[in-house]
Amino acid sequence: MTARYSTLFCAITGTQLLLACLLLIHAETETAAHQPLIRRKAELARTLELSDLCLFTEASYTRHLALADLRTPFQEYPMAMEHFPSGSLTSPPPHLTETHAPHP
């Protein structure tokens, strides 16, 4: 007698759920294990006074996103035609147009 379809389905979905749970546990343990590493990175940012992640190095405004001013984009990299895709993954820093100057 072959297995019922519902049994097969429950087996497949059950396996998927089990795997998903294992991955959640994996995520949990990995995250815990990475804590010292993250602390070391934060420490590096502190000692070197770093303000940005090194994600996109092709232009200053993507390399130092937080430090971008209103006019810098595209000025450093000579072959920069258009910074797709990084230009479309990043958005201008929220504080770009804000000013700390007292409002008149």
Binding site: S51, D52, L53, L55, L65, A66, L67, D69, F84, P85, G87, S88, L89, T90, S91, P93, P94, H95, T99, H100, A101, P102
Partner: peptide, 29 residues
């Protein structure tokens, strides 16, 4: 900014917000 009008201070919170806005769903790609 009051003392030095040509300066532009960036607070750490703003840096953090910048990276929180990264890959936002409104971004082009």
């Amino acid at each position: 900014v009051k003392i030095l009008p040509d300066s532009r201070p960036i607070i750490r919170n703003e840096i953090l917000r910048t990276y929180d806005a990264l890959f936002s769903w409104r971004g082009g790609l």
